[in-house]
Write a protein that binds this DNA or RNA. Structure first.
Lengths: 367, 367
DNA sequence: ATGAAAGCGCTAACAT
DNA sequence: ATGTTAGCGCTTTCAT
């Protein structure tokens, strides 16, 4: 009854198909890759036999080996997943990158690198990723995976980490200038006692606590996370210009990234310096949470407290937060584009995207 | 000065390293894969030479071909990206899957399948994905990519699509029962004139419009998107039980997925039937947007209008929405787990996750 | 502990 | 239009 079992013991390959049809392997290959190289008739027969034998077409891995193309881009994000997937700005970046990959017909491989894994495991994941290039997002300056990525000698685009790395293109914004502009605005409103709520400044957690803490002087000297550092220095710039002592800035660092981090940080900041009249935050998510906390404690914004954010995520704009809007989605698109269509020159590109100060309803003169 | 150029013309391979060191390729391979198979001394020399020659270790693709393991899982999501990345429930699923992959040391490949691409391109992406298995998420019943995935003869886990597909495991919730329970609650509150706001019911857009529209009788007969269909029928179930005519349900379909879709849909529903006292939504994002629209139009919730959602996303819970909480993150984890650690039996598994009715502050008796 | 040989499944020259 | 030949870079028996 069954001249041929529907699920053959051994998986069909191009060679077995060729044998079955008594043609050469090239012909089978052509049937899939160069339809014009063989008669429509033969091609039909090939495809029909393939279907009958359950042959899904050329094996992707073998093809990749031969063509030296994997058809995918690797994304290396060192941040915890719960960060990447809970910060709309980070998410927008991934979405933009995914969109760009989709348009280019490339897959996007999320490389299994995360804070839960040993660095050696993460490194192994980078070394065994079948991709044509990498995007490295928001790494700290001493990111161990960046080095591993570089070893692969594949095209690399680094995002949000302005350090000049030989031969890699970069996409970023001018965090320092953008933050300075925002801080200048706050200072010009008359604020003198300012708090800055930041994400984590270094790989190692500050004390041992999971709660936000006031950043020590030493910690402020060498923030390893570029983005946080630049934004911090942006505030310093504006303060210095206005004759304020940068040391007077109360900096509170949230190591963990929780929905309530901003509120907890606000509490810590106000406890450290009750005279604060403005809370600047290095991310909208921090600012929104801080606003919730302030409201719950009867502190009116902007009447009694000015609050600012950074990123320009939808919820922040909806709630009228004074912030800096950055094109996160576009960042992702550009990074992908740089990988898929590298500049003719072959030279690395530095792509600094514009930002925009958004004067919202959460800032005003101090009381 | 330079006995050996730092960046050799041709990329180093395992073979070139072997030649350089005058040992066999096996030895090099062992240095990376079976450190105990050679003297620590020789291994050191191999690694040192590798570093000198810029050899990043065994080529992942070649290794994959040989070992028949890609070290990655493919995720096929037919929905538009702006959907997947804007609905927290979908996102949680991806996060859960990513987490599971990370724990297993596997990459997660987002396959370039999307509504912007021709189906043939998407199919090609599926056929050329270098993965060890697939997760197919929330496909419509006639999803063309599902067939292509099946062709690959790789392990497959289908999520949110209960149709029995030969040999594939499934992770889902009982959408129909959960929605019926919620609808029963609404009906018991006394509501008789109910509106249901749904996501798209079919692949093809209803009319030609981008706006939400009242779903025609024909359209309601064969909703292709399983999840929407099940939730719709859940409402029918509760209505029938209470002696209400299912046809009296005003169903409004949002084909596009925008942040304001829920509000637009609410407007359409109320225009179609001004006597509605309850708006049930098949997703929290729809319900939240509807609530915003109602508030903007002076319609008090729950005093003048009961609103319910589905999913239990954080914002919904925060805002006290009456909804069904489903474990989206866990869905992702389970799907990953099923792929990484398939049941010993080799038999397909059906994993129905529990849901929970959340009686919030947005539901009450009709006026 | 190290090496030789045999492929994994495919594509790209180069014939014919 | 179809076939022949030669690898892509690696792992894995099986010898030594």
């Amino acid at each position: 009854m069954s001249p041929r079992s529907p699920t053959p013991r051994r998986r069909a390959t191009l060679a077995s198909l060729a044998a079955e049809l008594k043609v050469s392997r090239t012909t089978i290959s052509n049937a899939y890759n160069r339809p014009d190289q063989l008669s429509a008739d033969l091609r039909e027969r090939v495809l029909a036999t393939a279907k009958r034998m359950g042959y899904p077409g050329p094996d992707p891995v073998a093809r990749s080996l031969r063509t030296r193309k994997a058809g995918a881009v690797g994304l290396v994000m060192t941040e915890p997943l719960n960060y990447s997937f809970s910060d709309p700005a980070a998410l927008d970046f991934v979405a933009g990158l995914a969109e760009s990959c989709e348009d280019a017909g490339q897959g996007l491989l999320l490389v299994a690198v995360g804070p839960n894994r040993k660095v050696s495991d993460g490194a192994a994941a980078v070394l065994s990723a079948g991709v044509d290039g990498f995007v490295v997002y928001s790494a700290s300056d001493d990111d161990p995976y960046l080095q591993v990525v570089l070893q692969r000698h594949l095209p690399v685009v680094v995002v949000d980490q302005p350090q000049n790395i030989s031969g890699t293109s970069r996409v970023c914004i001018d965090d320092r200038a953008a933050m300075a502009e925002l801080a200048r605005y706050v200072v010009e409103l008359g604020h003198r006692e300012i708090g800055l709520l930041t994400m984590r400044l270094g790989r190692d957690r500050p004390h041992g606590t999971g709660k936000p803490v006031v950043a020590s002087a030493e910690r402020l000297e060498t923030p390893l996370f570029h983005v946080q550092r630049e934004r911090l220095h942006g505030v310093y710039d504006a303060m210095t210009e206005a004759g304020l002592a940068p040391q007077s800035l109360t900096v509170v660092e949230s190591y963990e990234h929780q929905p309530t981090s901003g509120g907890l940080a606000a509490e810590v900041a106000l406890a450290a310096n009750p005279r604060l009249t403005a809370l600047m935050c290095t991310a909208d998510v921090l600012a929104l949470s801080a606003m919730d906390w302030l409201r719950a404690h009867g502190i009116y914004v902007p009447g009694q407290m000015t609050v600012t954010g950074f990123d320009g995520v939808p919820e922040a704009l909806r709630r009228g937060l004074t912030t800096v809007r950055q094109p996160s989605l576009e960042k992702g698109r550009r990074a992908g584009h740089l990988l898929h269509s590298p500049p003719r020159s072959g030279l690395p590109v530095l792509d600094v995207l514009p930002t925009e100060l958004v004067r919202g309803r959460t800032s005003g003169p101090p009381v």
